[in-house]
Design a protein around this nucleic acid. Structure first.
Lengths: 397, 397
DNA sequence: TTTTACTATTCAAACGTTTGAATGTCAACA
DNA sequence: TGTTGACATTCAAACGTTTGAATAGTAAAA
């Protein structure tokens, strides 16, 4: 009984005998090796076999055949003892982990969290559990966690790689093991990986058209770093919209972020660009930044030189992450539907898991999520004259 | 090779997979039930027993006795087949999960990530793996994940509960199972839980003294919500420093945030307070906000009314999260050493795990991490005269 | 020749579940 | 009396590892 049980815990080095209250034969309470209550413990405590207890507690189909009284007794005892099924044993036996690996290249990037939220939302109804891992921008960790995902027998993997890295055949190990993958925020369909990402072309175009509509003509652009996937298509979208609206870029006003160590360093990049922009002496009325952090860096640079945003200069971001929304002036930006993208990734990975079970082949899928212009406080029509910042700067500081 | 294969067959009579494809070499392609390569597969492929292969691949002490050539062969074959040990089987057998559950009440709170980073850092050297879970401010999810932590046999748990919730005996289930817990960001030592948190009193005092040193005398304070742990001590620290410096608070200038739904809503709270503050017509030269998001909300409110920060009004935050650093003006704040706190929590939980193994009792520990003043752009000496915002506001807008 | 001591490898029993097949009841129907 | 079938429960074999104990083979020591 319970007291005997407690004494067994107190003296773990030898088995303790105790009597069952009802049955004629004594029940031997075995020494518990691990601290956790097992089916065996529950079975002994209530006098049924391990099988019956398992059937009841796991709500297997057979439990319909188990007498109601038995079920209640077993449930009560399990509750009382604090039984929690061992996920290791269960997954091992069932050959299902009910787990999807979620590997973020850098969780501290405010970009990732909404995606993760979407994934959680998508996994929930199927009662799959996300196995969340944060590679902290370290290639080494990314590798290690990928192994981990395999070892933990995740049934699928979602990779969030908003940041730079060359995953040439990083993922091949996963694919070799026939584990479905979905990647968020870059197009890897060419390598056979289903991909969910924002429509960068459309986003770039959206941003430029907004500036054009406000009346801006001399626009500075800060492109993303060379090795980053989004940089190319986003710039392409900007260019095509520019052609469309008859805007021409001054090569002096087009910058490119250096390859960055971590996402937060986009801020530094933006700040630096703003300084170079002002030092260049070319007139401009708007800055189209690669992402929100960059935009915030630009704002810092401009304000530091005595300019006002948006009165003297409009600044546009991209992504719509938290810091952009709570800054003052709040950054006008191109919103990526991150949560929805995560949700879709989850749905895809689940359906791929199912497809694999039924041995159906599946083609890699691609979704380009439509971005959305979020007009906030950092954009406005240009002032009468263009900012002649080279000179103004000297006066103000 | 063939002989080894035969001996493997001598093993317990299993429902033999009748393979017709007995090739000329006699190599039988094992029919894999799950998609994953097992020790058995490797053993067959290289003609050794499962035991030997296990010993080699897990680098058990016995592997010193295994011939060098054998080791190399086994490793090579394992590599070739893409073997990854099954974490379920391994943990089940070893009775160790090498896992610490990390349960964040809301991962999207920028407060959490640095703590998580610290935890990862602390777990790494012991090669423990964090099992990261995000309760999304939902009590129901928190519960569920707590169960999960137990089912996955995490050897310890770290709870990050920067946000409100009444965990009266939420954690008792964990404690009953004798799993060590450490909680970050509130003091639960009274309930026997080791706790790591910032020294809120010191932080509050630090903030107030900074304002005093700058010359501020009429200071508005926005206290944290009633149910939040930090609110009380932080306010106490502010008050004691005020007494010390001879500052008295105008009750009209002391606000309290309503109970909030999620951390980002601190921004709304701050914005609202700022409006009420301005509407109140009382003079003030500084606002001491409960946290950074609140401070950003205050800035928004003040700027919206035509005031400048810090020229017309100083705003102080608390925590030092990313949005505070990248906003312009950057928020002067009280930094919590979040990473260090996470690191300590990890170290504590690991040592508690060890203590438990050696059946040593351990007292709950408490650490109040020293906060640090980070002076940025949102604080300055007050202008000559105090802000008479009631009237000024009417003129400006 | 036997013993001892190694070295290199394998046996077999766990770990805690799940589940197809088997067992045992008991009442109803030939 | 035997058969049927429905219900309630249990048996026992896996799942993929690890590991203490056992087994061979060989060489040195007694």
């Amino acid at each position: 009984m319970v007291l005997a049980w407690a004494s067994a815990m107190g003296a773990p080095s030898r088995p303790v005998e105790a009597e069952s209250g009802t049955a004629e034969e004594g029940i031997i309470v075995a020494q518990r090796r691990s601290g956790h209550v097992t089916l065996m413990d529950v079975a002994r405590a209530c006098g049924f076999s391990v099988s019956t207890v398992s059937i009841v507690l796991s709500e297997a189909p057979l439990s319909l055949n188990v007498a109601e009284t038995t079920r209640q007794l077993i449930r009560a005892k399990a509750q009382e003892l604090g039984y929690h099924p061992d996920a290791f044993a269960r997954s091992l036996r069932r050959r299902r982990s009910q787990t999807i690996g979620v590997l973020a290249y850098d969780l501290s990037d405010p970009y990732c969290l909404p995606v993760v939220r979407g994934i959680q939302e998508g996994l929930q109804p199927a009662s799959y559990l996300p196995l969340l891992m944060d590679a902290q921008t370290e290639r080494r960790l990314f590798d290690k966690y990928l192994q981990m995902v395999l070892e933990r027998r995740a049934e699928g993997v979602i990779v969030i790689a908003s940041w730079v890295f060359d995953e040439t055949d990083l993922l091949s190990d996963i694919q070799k093991n026939n584990v479905p993958i979905v990647i968020v925020s870059r197009d890897l369909t060419a390598r056979g990986v289903s991909s969910v990402l924002v429509d960068n072309e459309a986003g770039g175009a959206l941003a430029l058209r907004h500036l054009h509509a406000l009346g801006h003509r001399r626009i500075a652009v800060i492109r993303g770093p060379e090795e980053m996937f989004d940089s190319g298509p986003r710039w392409a979208g900007i260019q095509s919209a520019a052609a469309e609206t008859g805007i021409e870029f001054d090569a002096q006003l087009v910058f490119q972020l250096p390859s960055l160590v971590d996402p937060a360093s986009g801020f530094e990049g933006g700040l630096d660009c703003a300084r170079r922009l002002l030092a260049g002496g070319q007139a401009f009325t708007a800055v189209l930044a690669f992402d929100d952090l960059t935009a915030l860096g630009v704002v810092r640079g401009l304000v530091g030189a005595g300019l006002r945003v948006p009165e003297d200069c409009t600044v546009l971001g991209f992504d719509d992450v938290l810091p952009a929304a709570v800054a003052t002036p709040a950054i006008t930006t191109i919103r990526q539907p991150l949560r929805e993208m995560g949700l879709l990734a989850a749905e895809w990975v689940l359906s791929a898991v199912e497809a694999r079970e039924q041995r159906r082949e599946q083609m890699p899928l691609l979704h380009r999520a439509p971005p959305e212009l979020v007009v906030r406080m950092s954009s406005a029509a240009p002032a009468g004259r263009e900012t002649q910042n080279g000179r103004e700067l000297a006066e103000v500081t």
